[in-house]
């Protein structure tokens, strides 16, 4: 059942992105950024956690999960360190994703050449 939920949720989010891309003059970069913010927003009332429980991987794969992790980290930081904790904790949970993107990009770019 989980696979079906994952498929439906991720598919729906991508469909939404495609509709925005096709009907407005926004670029893919704009759409991705909007979705991160949407994911962050949905985490405010712990809504996104419900999505993760329901769809599992399907809610973690789209970029909306990035926004969710940002807010989660910020709130955790705020609980530990007070107001400044918002800044301290924000990148805590997303650090693995960001660092892996940087590290992979760097090392692969040393080995490979762009083709076409």
């Amino acid at each position: 059942m989980n696979y079906l939920h994952a498929f439906l949720f991720a598919g729906f989010v991508c469909l939404l992105g495609q509709i925005i891309l096709d009907n407005t003059k926004l670029t893919p970069g704009h759409v991705t950024t909007i979705f991160v913010v949407v994911g962050a927003f949905l985490d405010i009332f712990n809504l996104y956690d419900q999505f993760i429980l329901w769809a599992g991987g399907g809610a973690l794969v789209p970029i909306t999960s990035f926004g969710h992790l940002l807010i989660h980290g910020a709130m955790q930081g705020a609980m530990d360190y007070g107001f400044m904790g918002l800044c301290v904790g924000m990148l805590n949970l997303t650090s693995s994703g960001i660092m892996s993107a940087i590290v992979f990009s760097f090392f692969f770019a040393l080995i490979f050449r762009p083709k076409d």
């Binding site: 891309l21 893919p28 762009p114 076409d116």
Partner: peptide
């Protein structure tokens, strides 16, 4: 093609629609 794409649009390996 690649030199111009790199300069005017996106990195060449980027597949944006």
């Amino acid at each position: 093609n690649n030199a111009a794409e790199k300069q005017f649009r996106y990195p060449v390996e980027y597949g944006g629609p």
